[in-house]
């Protein structure tokens, strides 16, 4: 009987290993992060004046702001990278599944990226509504904490198979609050959401470790990138992509070598 259980464990391990296809999305988002660097060109001395005059722009929650010389181009770049990356990842998993003979579900991954890409619209609403409320005086720290707690609650609701509309509403709200507080790394939050879901579906220890390292890198980038430093240079602005991008590229290469 113990032998049978051991055989079944071995079968399960083999099935999981044969489903692994994570190096592609990890490498894709890593390379895309570095390719964004030229678009982080700052305005220079005018920057502070421009930041004090905000305009309605949902792309500010996807890693851009008015201190950049090309905010629209950078916002559109990240939007394109996220949408194309999600579709390409789903295609890649399907193609690999058909070739190997064992398919991974990518519905949850696409839903997570969809929530992350759609949440900036809600986030922008918060940007305009919150300043008129006591919540508007909150620092990014507490708002970040609230966003993470709401996302954690959405995860619990999902695990307990709560009504989908409640789960999705909680996920969108949590992501929007997080992007409202940390808009400068909003694009990395979307990538992170997708990778967390993919890692849960793949059940790969290595992929889970890479994803955890990436999330730590995003937190460090959000906390320590000298965006407000004067004078602003390409590297003070683009520094935000270096650590998350590095972790993804290295993680993807390690995955390619080991899988």
């Amino acid at each position: 009987m113990a032998d049978l259980l051991g055989d079944l464990d071995e079968l399960r391990r083999r099935a999981r290993k044969d489903r692994h296809a994570y190096p592609f999305p990890v490498l894709y988002f890593g390379v895309a992060s570095f390719l964004a660097i030229p678009l982080y060109q700052p305005w220079g001395p005018e920057a502070l004046r421009r930041v004090s005059a905000p305009t309605w722009n949902p792309l500010t929650s996807l890693g851009t702001n008015d201190a950049l010389r090309y905010p629209l181009a950078l916002g559109l770049y990240w939007l394109t990278v996220l949408v194309v990356g999600a579709l390409a990842t789903a295609w890649w998993y399907r193609r690999r599944g058909r070739r190997v003979g064992i398919e991974t579900s990518t519905g949850g991954y696409l839903a997570a990226v969809g929530i992350g890409v759609g949440a900036p619209l809600v986030s922008e609403g918060l940007y305009w509504y919150l300043p008129m409320t006591p919540l508007g005086h909150w620092q990014p720290g507490p708002a970040t904490g609230i966003g993470l707690v709401v996302i954690a609650a959405a995860t619990v609701l999902w695990r307990r198979r709560a009504p989908r509309v409640v789960t999705v509403a909680a996920a969108v709200l949590g992501t929007a609050v997080l992007q409202y507080a940390q808009g400068w790394v909003g694009q990395f939050i979307v990538i992170g959401l997708g990778l967390v879901v993919l890692a849960a579906v793949e059940r790969s220890t290595r992929f889970t470790t890479i994803t955890a390292a990436y999330l730590v890198a995003v937190c460090l980038s959000a906390g320590f990138t000298p965006v407000q430093s004067v004078p602003t240079t390409l590297w003070t602005m683009a520094g935000v992509v270096l650590l998350p991008g590095f972790v993804l590229v290295v993680g993807g290469l390690v995955g390619l070598r080991r899988e």
Binding site: L11, A15, R16, R19, G97, G101, I102, E103, T104, S105
Partner: peptide, 13 residues
Amino acid sequence: TVAAEAKRVEFGY
């Protein structure tokens, strides 16, 4: 056991 690990699995696999 194998089918429960995936969305779907092919006969040859």
